[in-house]
Design a protein around this nucleic acid. Structure first.
Lengths: 114, 114
DNA sequence: GGCTTATTTTACCAAATAGCCAAATAAGCT
DNA sequence: AGCTTATTTGGCTATTTGGTAAAATAAGCC
């Protein structure tokens, strides 16, 4: 019983982590993060870049904000969003490494098959 | 038209990134990754630790494997999984920082309200 | 106040995900 | 081959997520 169901005891901890990662786990949101890393942008600018309904973009931004990844600043009619946590960018290097390794394995398999 | 719908041109790139992050975006899978970082484990060990149906655990592992994050090794009746990409662990430090900052903001708000 | 523009919220539908059980597969043992 | 154990796969339902359109808010301008 000692090691069993260890997860139950740490569930809340991992749920918090998962919230952050869920916020990142969407192509549009990852794109938005990269854009905001360059420069703060208003919702309408992001809508033009992304090309979907502004309400959709707004929801993506709310999700990122609730996760603590971006912050917003109101200026007149517009709301400008900017990146709150720059360390996420470093993580993408790791993600790229995973993708690269994956492709290498795929090509190795193809060579073997040929 | 120059900057508009930029996302369409880079969509595939961000979809690949999102695949990796989706694989990470689940409390049980994050727990499994931490466990595998310590030591390779068979599916039944992980089932005991997690406490859900073995088929559920197996599916989580398949997902992590397809994302290139873990690898498997068959030994007799058992299948042992281990962490393939250790750099994900470093990212969790960033995630913890986000959570920490979030809590600080929350407490600051409470102080203001009180 | 009324008009316009930017953003958010609500309501609703479609698609994806997570979980469990049962059946199928795989590997060892006698 | 028959039995047992470990894991994977398929089928099903419940829940969550993603998207759009329409309504509601918010801020500026006349």
């Amino acid at each position: 019983m000692s090691k069993q169901r260890k997860f139950e005891k740490v569930r809340v901890f991992y749920e918090k982590r998962a919230t952050i990662l869920k916020a990142l786990a969407h192509p549009v949101r990852l794109f938005i993060i990269d854009e905001l890393a360059k420069k703060e942008k208003c919702v309408c600018e992001l809508r033009d870049l992304v090309g979907s309904d502004i309400s959709t973009v707004s929801k993506h931004l709310l999700l990122l904000k609730n996760a603590g990844l971006v912050k917003d600043r109101k200026q007149g009619l517009q709301v400008f969003y900017s990146l709150q946590v720059s360390c996420v960018l470093k993580f993408f290097d790791c993600v790229e490494a995973v993708i690269g390794a994956e492709q290498q394995r795929y090509q190795a398999t193809r060579r073997k098959a040929a």
